[in-house]
Write a protein that binds this DNA or RNA. Structure first.
Lengths: 112, 112
DNA sequence: ACATAATATTGCTAATTAGTAATATTGTCA
DNA sequence: TGACAATATTACTAATTAGCAATATTATGT
């Protein structure tokens, strides 16, 4: 157990989740929601995407279960449903940083 | 530090990496390479994708720096370059499992 | 009821890409 | 060198989707 390969359906499910994180605009939304819930307008201001697009991406993230939605009067607030996303992003950022550093080291070694 | 938001380029880089993991066929390749390096033919046999497609996806993963490539005579072996990928997949699998369980619990509570 | 503000939806276009069949390349062995 | 096996590439199609402008919906205050 914990060692058997995922079947086709499971692979599709995993891929689907990664796909949600495979768009810069959605990642931008998520990182802005990391500290605290924000209204749609606040997210629009924090990013440089148009309102229609933010609404669309928020809908996608919400439908997928990554975001909570709460209406408060005229505003709609979104918040992170599962902070695990940030663990994912931290891993990826760590890898990118490491890769960048080793590329830098390679360039430096050319100077010798 | 470690708290500032990623800029557009960084978001694109993170998204790019998630995108590599957002295809079932590529995930299937990766999970098959988890135990040990495999030749292209072995990967083709282990999955149910055509040779041309496997070669293409292997090329994508290799170009992105996720896979190592080594020619041994007539065969070409691929291997995982950074096992961090599996940490990512483990997190995602964990979330999917948790979500499935809570959905199950919700259904069960209806029976009361 | 009406005007206004916030958010969602619709209809669309352009760009990306997985998968495929056919073909090319590379290496081995006789 | 020629035949064969393994892998890569090419040219293509079909499907998906981010982003946008315009418009619709929903809530508030008067």
């Amino acid at each position: 157990m914990a060692n058997s390969l995922l079947n086709q359906d499971q692979l599709r499910a995993v891929a689907r989740l990664f796909d949600l994180l495979a768009e810069p605009t959605r990642l931008d939304i998520l990182q802005n929601l990391k500290k605290k819930p924000l209204s749609v307008g606040e997210i629009v201001n924090a990013t440089n995407a148009k309102q229609a697009n933010i609404s669309k991406q928020l809908g996608i993230l919400h439908d997928a279960g990554l975001l909570r939605r709460e209406r408060r009067g005229n505003l709609v607030f979104y918040s992170i449903d599962d902070p695990m996303i940030f663990d994912l992003c931290a891993l990826v950022c760590g890898k990118l940083r490491k890769d960048a550093e080793s590329r830098l080291a390679a360039v430096r070694s050319l100077g010798r």
